[in-house]
Design a protein around this nucleic acid. Sequence first.
DNA 1: ATGGTGGATGGTCCA
Length: 257
Amino acid sequence: MRIATWNVNSIAARLPVVLRWAEYERPDVLCLQEIKCVDAKFPAAEFEALGYASVTHGQPTYNGVAILALSPVDGVVKGLPGDEEPGHSRLVAGTVGGITVVNVYIPNGSEVGSDKYSFKLDWLARLRMFLDERYSAADPVLICGDFNVAPDDRDVHDPKLWDGKILCSPAEREALEKVREWGFEDAFRLHTTDGGHFSWWDYRAGAFRRNAGLRIDHVWVTAPLLKRCASVRIDKEPRMWDRPSDHAPVIAEFTAG
DNA sequence: ATGGTGGATGGTCCA
């Protein structure tokens, strides 16, 4: 069972790249963030032609998340409780092949100290409450997505430059740690302990060429999945294609449970 | 260089 996560920065703009990648990689589950479209505009038929069912939670212009899966998705949840209506579409969850998958697009936060930063910290606190109320860490639960946080300095190309900045600041790292303490481990760090592995590179200033990136896209799992996790890798290949997303997909592989 | 690039949109907002 392979589960992937990818911030695609508009599914309309990225459809050729995502279809091409899905066709050769063919993960069992593909979690997308920033689809930037309403549910009715999601290109479900194109993915269905590859065998994928779509569960979308979109909104106009911004945000939006989707779970694509080769087998049926049950127990679907759309949206984080406590979101104002109409809220940001930043969470979609469901159970596929016995694994509960929680797909999140955690707010970016803009700048430390801004209103958007407060919203990010509050959203993370509400995410923890949602997990407390809805799921059990004794079960196979996986949370993945664009977390918009580099958990520690190994995940930052230039820790001095980013020190205290958005995506790296202590308060957001602590708020994310509270989510982790619910019962998750960072699956990537099971297999890879060194730095220099990134999942996002700014479009500007030749950041990808210089590998000036951050590791902000994550796959975290509970204990029952931890022992089944065979590998986690970041696929930089589609970041080199024409009209790429600024994020690379992350793929986790699990042995049968 | 308080910039740079990219997406949705059709002015700016967002990342």
